[in-house]
Design a protein around this nucleic acid. Structure first.
Lengths: 364, 364
DNA sequence: AAAAAACATTTATCTGTTTACCTCGATGGG
DNA sequence: CCCATCGAGGTAAACAGATAAATGTTTTTT
């Protein structure tokens, strides 16, 4: 029962803010009309005459009136605030999703509260609580690992529009916009198999997020279809970042048989592996094939250019925002996942297995 | 006079939100006390008895009461909201600054409205206006190019705490937390000169932002001190991204004399140049020395490891947040820039000029 | 002249916070 | 012993600034 109620209300003794602000009343007085009319005029209601509207707006302009959303929100229970929580905007993929979200929401006059929950469900919960205190109109969530179905469903029950993005949470009564992760790694793995690889590792992805689980399944599916046994391949879970990718290299190299190809959970892990492999004298591409996921900025410009799965972050972001807006507008949105098709981008990092396996002894 | 007043108030006909929310009144009724007492109890005021406070809090817990900040804000004119506007959180450097900001502000119960203004002062202005409508407690701003001194000073005049971050805006009545950009490129350039380079290009940086200007000046200063004339060197302004870096390469290569070293405006531009140079058969490092700025994640793991200037983003973010919080608390903060010392990190990408100049003709 | 637009106003919220004031028993000076 | 004072614990009522709903006024239409 000891619920985490998030930040407390502020303590009473704070220095007062200076300067009385202007209100509707000032405009009303100045023009000799009522505040109700002023309110309606500013909101372009058809209930006020064109001429009055003009005068009101002009006066508002002149005296430097600033609309008070707290006051409006109190009356209307609409805050024009939506929350967005992702595990890490440092990840360029999310940064792109976020940019698209922002574009759409901003256009509708929504402001965005953002939270980097860093896959800490405590942080996420604190954020959601504060969001509720601000009476946010909705929440776009890439749920942290460890998020329970119930805590999200409780929000939905309270009537808060929720849209999941990138990560699915089975059993949640909310729509989800995500890429087809299983399909993505399936395509990448199949491509590597067609190139002639037989020892194909899967590196990274958290098993307790749908993204990690599904990408792993796609890899398994492709291997199984080709008659290869995924369970005897190298399969390192839990890695997400460049640093993780770098750290994984020794484990890959000491595997027996050593994989000739690697399916990376995302581009960052792939980049991390590539830089460290090269340092070990093993040229990514010629010596060991690598694929990534997300096609982040620069993936095509690396040496070698990274074969990866394009995931349409801006489309996912835009759709998630639109889905949330529909819910906010009162639409009953089916809680079925909206799955965006990925596209394999074949580049230089995934050639057929070559002869140059093993550290070059004559490395300069 | 046609001021941009940002997003309009919402139009009147929106579907109503379902479900009455619980209020202080419900707790008061249940316990047979007044709402005033409940309010005070929840905020730990010494004006209510210990015992009452306990009962109030327990009841609040039980019935699932959620504090309404809009209502409180209306009375107190404190919103527990701060705005953060930067030109691009896609830039990993800013993402790190932002993470630090977030940590500090979150701890104080502040929520963050974020804006990617993309160096568009219109977007920035719209954001600031909406911020005012929400009665934000303060604003942390990396001002877009084209931001006028007056528009910021007007905010300060209205009593809105403002702290600038990363970019300075001379004449603004607000503190600024930034790295010592001039010193950073000065150190990098001096290092290249000490390595024996004489033709040192400066690539990137917008002249209408303090960052771009100061980094350029640092480069000039080092050249001048070494008796080299900056005005006859390659100096390409306005570039900020990896893509920009890639695009700049042809211009660098066709310069006469061709520079043997490049000072990049930031790591992204440096990375972009490195990948494209390598594709042109010119190995960054041995064939052409390169330095970056920011020391973003992965800079030390590239081939070659990038010599760059570490800029302490988390320190800058933290200090900016603390400075803003002091202002919000009512402190009069001196409007003098807080300048963080940078540190040159010498790695592999900046060796002395070698013999391998020019495209390899036998490139594979 | 009755009915219907077209405009504007009045009034009652919305939910917390604040301020002035009340109650009641204890203390203490005269 | 009486009355003034005090402190602790609370409360009623006045906000804060906008909005929804109901209720007037005119003016126009039929």
């Amino acid at each position: 029962m000891s619920e985490d109620n998030g930040p407390k209300p502020p303590s009473p003794e704070l220095p007062p803010k200076p300067g009385k602000r202007l209100t509707l009343g000032h405009i009303a007085d100045q023009l000799g009309i009522s505040t109700a009319t002023v309110s309606l005029a500013l909101r372009d209601s058809p209930l006020v005459a064109e001429e009055t509207r003009e005068k009101v707006k002009q006066t508002a302009q002149e005296i430097g009136y600033i609309y008070n959303r707290s006051a409006a929100s109190l009356r209307t229970s609409r805050s024009q605030i939506v929350g967005v929580a992702v595990h890490d905007i440092l990840n360029p993929y999310f940064a792109e999703v976020f940019s698209a979200l922002e574009d759409v929401l901003e256009e509708q006059g929504q402001m965005i509260f953002i939270c980097n929950h860093r896959d800490d469900s405590k942080r996420q919960r604190a954020f959601v609580n504060t969001l509720l205190q601000h009476r946010a109109d909705g929440l776009i969530l890439c749920p942290s690992v460890g998020t329970s179905t119930e805590e999200i469903n409780r929000l939905v029950d309270q009537g808060i529009p929720v849209t999941l993005v990138a990560r699915e949470l089975p059993g949640v009564w909310a729509p989800c916009v995500r890429g087809d992760d299983m399909c993505g790694t399936y395509l990448a793995t199949k491509h590597l198999i067609e190139q002639g690889h037989k020892d194909i590792a899967m590196i990274g992805g958290r098993r307790d997020s749908s993204t990690g689980r599904l990408r792993n399944e796609g890899w398994r599916k492709a291997l199984n279809e080709a008659g290869l046994d995924p369970d005897i391949q190298v399969d390192l879970p839990e890695l997400m970042t460049q640093a993780d990718g770098r750290a994984a290299v020794p484990k890959i190299l000491e595997a027996d048989p050593r994989p000739t190809a690697i399916v990376g959970f995302n581009d960052l892990v792939a980049f991390g592996m590539m830089t460290t492999l090269r340092r070990a004298g093993i040229e990514p591409g010629p010596d060991i094939a690598i694929t990534g996921y997300d096609d982040i900025d620069g993936a095509d410009a690396r040496t070698p250019a990274l074969t990866t799965v394009a995931n349409q972050p801006e489309k996912i972001g835009r759709l998630a925002a639109l889905t949330l807006l529909r819910q906010i507008a009162g639409d009953r949105v089916p809680n079925k996942p909206i799955v965006i098709e990925p596209e394999l981008r074949i580049r230089e990092s995934s050639p057929p297995p070559g002869v140059r396996i093993g550290p070059k002894l004559d490395a300069d």
